[in-house]
Structures are given as C-alpha cells and as structure tokens.
Amino acid sequence: MHARKPADGDADGGVPRAREGARAVLDGNEINRALTRIAHEVLERTKGGEDVTLLGIPSRGVPLARRLARRIERVEEMSVPVGSLDITMYRDDLRSSPVRALGRTEIPTGGLDDRVVVLIDDVLFSGRTVRAALDALGDLGRPRAVQLAVLVDRGHRELPIRADYVGKNLPTSLRENVTVCLEETDGEDAVLLSPSRPSPSTTLNRRPSAEDPSSPSPSTTLNRRPSAEDPSSPSPSTTEGND
C-alpha cells in the first residue's frame, strides 16, 4: 500500500532541478503573458464570463486555475468561482500502476449545474487525463458547457480531445519530457523541455541514450515512457500526468 504522493509521483511533479539537457521553453514572464491572454480569451468566448467556473486538475492545474481567476477578476472586476477536480479515481491506468494517493476535489458552492466549466491543466498530452476529468464532471453535475485550457499542448493525442485555450503549442517528440514548474508548487515558474526521462534510480549516473527505450524494467514503472516503436504500451504516458 505504498501510494505515490501526487506531488512527487506525477511526472510533472518532482523537484524542478535543472535536469541535464533540460531547456526552458517558457520562462516566468512568458507563462504570465500566456495566462493573461487565456484570461482574455475566456472572457471573449464566454461573453463576459458570467457563468464561468474554473476547475484546476491537480496538481499543477490548481494553481494555474487560481492565477487565471485572479486575472479574469482584474479585467472584468467580477469574482469567478475556482475549484479543483481530482481525476485519480477515474483514470484508465489504475490497474497498471501502483496505487496513487488522491488529490483534492473542491467544487465551488453553487455547484456545476448550468455553469460553463473551464478545466485547467498544465500539459495536454495523450488526452487521457481530460477524458477522466469529463467522466468525473458527469458525476458531479451537469455543466452547460465544458471547455479546456492548458498551459502547454505538446501533441501526441490518443483520444479525440482538443484544448479551447492553449498557452503554447509545443511540438515534441515522444522521447522528450515536458515539465511545468510553478512558483506555488516548485518555487519557480518555468516550462522545461528535456530529453527522454531517465528512471529515478539511474538519474544520477546515467544519461539515457536515444537507442535505449528507457530500460523498461518493472521497477521503473513510475517513469516509464511509451516509446514510439512500442504501440503495445498505449497509456503509460498518462501515468506521467503530463497530458
């Protein structure tokens, strides 16, 4: 019964150490500008943001949702309900990975019925997190519409899902990792792109080569990557929480 803590288990989690070969694709200012633009887009698309409820997906989506709400409030001088939506119990890969600790679900008072719910996550990848979030929403109420805002869209969708608001489109290879660091959770704002993730046990003394599909030993399940050549492992990408 060793559950992974959301903070250090998710691939977007962990300490934002300057990983070898990691390259910052967005710095703090750029993240802020992207969020400000998304805030305006949300207001525009929802005609003033009257019925909007923002729901962040733990862990990085929650601080992003709060920041977005602050910006919308600043622009329109109205308060926006913000909450969080944990999707752990709705994941499609629960059986194939170790037990996960649950994140927090907080639905703002007033509920979700007839609201325009904007889901917020850090990275859109396979789309499986969003699929799970849509299932979770269905059990919580009946929103009038559901939209999706992400800070980074890195491509490689495995489901017919797209984002309504995107901070940055980032073409990536499946061998690369996208890590979003936020001041609230990691102490600094940055979006990092790094080459294939080494497994934690080998982080220190081994640089993964491109030919090595990241040593798929069972003990590295936490961080295993889908390799492009291996279509038989369709979902591990979602274990990364990066989608």
Partner: peptide, 23 residues
C-alpha cells in the same frame, strides 16, 4: 495516515449527486 487522508477525500462522495466512483 495515507488511509485517513484518502478517506477524507472519499468522504465527499457521500454528498454528491452520483454517489459512485468507477474505480
């Protein structure tokens, strides 16, 4: 502590309109 924390999160399910999780 993990069991208690998990139970804290799951306690919300009893207050929802659909009191069921697909887990």
């Amino acid at each position: 502590t993990l069991i208690l924390d998990t139970a804290t999160e799951l306690a919300q399910v009893g207050d929802r309109s659909v009191k069921k999780l697909p887990t």
